[in-house]
Write a protein that binds this DNA or RNA. Structure first.
Lengths: 282, 282
DNA sequence: TAAAATTTGTACGTATGTATC
DNA sequence: CGATACATACGTACAAATTTT
């Protein structure tokens, strides 16, 4: 048989994920979403591992990551358990798997949000339950609290963190309000990539209250149900983020450097031993 | 210390993925996308494993899956290698990881597409390269070929398969045309869940040529760049699918049963032994 | 004061799958 | 391509800690 030249197509590397990392991320999500609040106790290891469909050793591995990240505290004994002690640690800071996102693709991320989120907000407005609306209002309240705590011109790290949590929580609430699991899954794809940007971008804001304001505008627009208003408010929110990001990346020598600095672990630190790394198939 | 009741929030099970499955899926994607065509030879095992960032045994494991699925053929010897021999096996039929999708959530999937795809098509129209447009046209051509091969009223399995490939390929081409990696990733979330629906739905079509026609309408609309036309054509394409699905699920005793039949493995057959299952964190 | 209940902590044996040669 | 060595995850069982009864 005649020799056939191989295809010229080159396959991108796959990124593998360890169960413990997936589990830790799942729990972190629940904390960030406000499903489990600070001070609450998670189910026992036995119950949790059953719910998650994994073994207890694997769960314990995940718990180690969470403890190391300062998100939870574990107490032994009869009235002990796994307690949530913080909600302010972005997943990427804890060394969790973050999809590879070259810094220069952050505009692509923002554009994807611009494409997706107005539609999601519209659908949310049509289908939100009272509980959904309350979750949105809670997120807005949190964002204003963050703004209040920071009256000075400079934006502290804590304030930026609170604001990122509020924003993330708002987005999750909106996605949930669609009552559509596929939309939620797609929003997760966006949110997992947003961690890196938010923190950096928020520090590029002229005024921290702008961010809270834009969240409230979106929330009120959704409650009003007015189509044009929803689209405008959602677009405005992303505009704000984009402008802030532009300012930050212009200040820094390079956008990539800024992005990397904001999210250690983003560049995937050359794989400790095996080729064990994170995340889904492309 | 007072005893604290655990949170009432229940965690959804995580779905784990094995490297070989991820790799097999990645290669399948390339085949379905038309990146590597039938008859082509893939790179050598050594080259492939290097590209994919995995060991050769893992790759070989993945190849076993592909061979079993009838997608590729392994020929030994100097002029041998890994040859693509088919593109017509949906990933789910090969036992690949398919995200859990309860049959009753297929309307949610279709609604998510309705929300997302018109926007993607608009963006694609603005940014498509000539190569992108050609990929779309190729997909349309393929769909018409499928229609031609099936002039009778009843739709054969082969025809349905060809049509699903053409549709998938068209969607991939449109997503690629956005030149936006995040949008592509989100489209993947949709497409991976579509496999189950397409095959079943297509058989519910009044006329197989409707499907090819709707693809061509979308393709021409995108080339025209006309906003209203693009939105209408994309919506019409999903309408067609939704009507077909409605017909299929109405015929069958239950929509869930039909969905499960179309996609074995969908319902996650009660976990053979461990909790080995597929895919990303929720 | 002591026993019981609950929950984390630790350890072992097995199976599976991956990496190295 | 095969065989061996290693890593990972599971299941289970038991020990330790702490509060409640």
């Amino acid at each position: 048989m005649a020799r056939v030249a191989p295809t010229s197509f080159v396959f991108a590397p796959v990124q593998l994920v360890r169960p413990a990392e997936v589990v830790a991320f799942r729990i972190t999500e629940a904390i960030l979403a406000g499903d489990v609040k600070v001070g609450e106790r998670l189910p026992s290891e036995q119950a949790l591992s059953a719910q998650l469909g994994i073994s207890r050793p694997t769960l314990r591995e995940a718990i180690k990551l969470l403890v190391h990240a300062g998100l939870v505290q574990v107490l032994p004994g009869s009235s002990g358990g796994l307690f949530v002690i913080s909600e302010s640690v972005p997943a990427n800071l804890a060394g969790f798997p973050v999809p590879d996102l070259p810094g220069d693709q952050i505009p692509a991320l923002l554009q994807a949000r611009r494409l997706f989120e107005p539609q999601v907000a519209l659908m949310a407005a049509q289908r939100a339950t009272p509980a959904d609306l309350e979750r949105m209002r809670d997120a807005v309240t949190l964002s204003f609290a963050a703004g209040q705590a920071n009256r000075e011109r400079t934006i502290s790290h804590e304030t930026a963190l609170m604001m990122t949590i509020a924003s993330t929580r708002f987005n999750i609430a909106v996605a949930r309000a669609t009552q559509n699991s596929v939309v939620m899954k797609m929003m997760e794809v966006l949110l997992r990539r947003m961690d890196a940007v938010r923190l950096a971008a928020i520090r590029g804001l002229d005024d921290i209250s702008e961010s809270a304001q834009s969240l409230r505008n979106s929330q009120q627009a959704i409650e009003s149900g007015d189509r044009a208003r929803i689209e405008a408010a959602t677009a405005a929110r992303i505009d704000l983020l984009e402008r802030a990001w532009g300012r930050v990346s212009a200040l820094a020598p390079g956008a990539q450097a800024a992005a990397a600095a904001a999210a250690p672990g983003l560049k995937a630190e050359a794989a400790p031993r095996g080729a064990r790394r994170s995340s889904r198939a492309a």
